[in-house]
Design a binder for these strands. Structure first.
Lengths: 209, 209
DNA sequence: CTTATTATAGGATAATATGCCTTTCCGCAA
DNA sequence: TTGCGGAAAGGCATATTATCCTATAATAAG
């Protein structure tokens, strides 16, 4: 299912992502600046105007946006259901009836959890190097990071300082002026940073095992 | 990036999927039977003809194909890798040029990693209870488990014994007759199990943070 | 084998999207 | 305050795609 509204929303989403107005995005894509005007999306007779695939291709090329990014905006427009996995509390796992002989989920009693539950988020991945974050993260482990999810106390976060240092820590405390970070390796001391020294902070969502 | 060829390939892929010829697909979508003809995809002057988004929407509606299905064909058409996230080595993250001011991936130099890369696997999720697996897994953490992925040394695994006990450990060693498991909590001793006592063993793929 | 139907190529025409132009409004800098 | 550039609405012209039509080839059915 693909709707007129979805497509235009996706285009608007791209424009917003790249800090452009519709006319700015059109201009950047080599289209006429008025071609993405809201006023031109429905004709005077009520007939819907569908942007051409060629225009979309030009937009993607000019912004450098991936097909996936455009697609993500399309899906948002379509209210796609999240993909869920069977979920069971670990304490129940030892009771009978939850797994079949091959170790697959079976029976009733399983909940559902959204995974990977990216939503509108644009996750990225970092590959750990070295052993400084053992035992939590080993050399070669991959962490999945959300630049937009709001970290709370106890969350693992990627922090970049204004000096350019990037670190992974656990968020211990946050005040109006400072952020206190606990090292993942107990041998290293906690850090307290002034928020003015923090360029950005992103939340670790998943870690590979 | 979206190319003329990708789009037409995706349309052809849909037709094939539903056992239709191009003219049959067009007819089914309420379009003129000649409109998807190969002969009409490039004009006599060499100019490419791009199918309209409206036509594509009609095709998706008529076949009942999902946007994902069309998208999958788009990606195949463009020789695109499975859906992936930008990936960067952590050691590089502190260097300049990899993040924009908002903490989003930027610039070149990012690889791509498949996430969640389930393939045909049937993952399930277990929610950790208690503190016995700290610091690796905290109470309430969710681990994503593959019942089919082959565990190797060092992998975290969910093991069920024939007696019905279910545990999460690290695979230390596996021989023809036994499996040696290291506890995630260093306060607990390693376990050596006879393979005959192991009902099944599944591999932990991801852990929530 | 014959007939009917579908698939495909190609040309002409109708419909639709983009481009061009003008106007108005807004924000910013000189 | 004035001038400039960008954003957006609206009208008209141009370019492009879909539809209609015809013919031929291929396939399916009797």
């Amino acid at each position: 299912m693909l709707s007129h509204d979805q497509i235009w929303s996706a285009i608007d989403g791209l424009a917003a992502r790249y800090g452009l107005s519709p006319s700015g995005l059109a201009r950047k894509a080599g289209l006429d600046p008025t071609s993405l005007n809201r006023s031109k999306r429905v004709g005077p007779d009520g007939r819907l105007r569908w942007p051409s695939t060629e225009s979309i291709a030009k937009i993607l090329e000019a912004t450098g946006a991936s097909l996936d990014e455009f697609m993500a905006n399309l899906e948002r427009g379509g209210r796609r259901a999240p993909r869920g996995l069977p979920l069971l509390g670990f304490a129940q796992a030892g009771q009978g009836g939850y797994f079949d002989d091959g170790g697959f989920p079976a029976g009733t009693g399983w909940d559902e959890v959204a995974f990977p539950d990216m939503g509108d988020d644009r996750f990225y991945a970092l590959e750990i190097s070295g052993e400084s974050m053992m035992p939590l993260y080993r050399d070669g482990d991959v962490i999945i990071v959300s630049p937009t999810a709001a970290p709370r106390r106890g969350d693992r976060v990627v922090v970049r300082t204004t000096e350019g240092e990037v670190m992974v820590k656990e968020l211990k405390r946050r005040t109006v002026r400072t952020v206190e970070l606990r090292s993942l390796n107990p041998d290293h001391a906690d850090r307290v940073l002034s928020l003015a020294d923090v360029s950005w902070m992103a939340r670790v969502m998943w870690a590979s095992q």
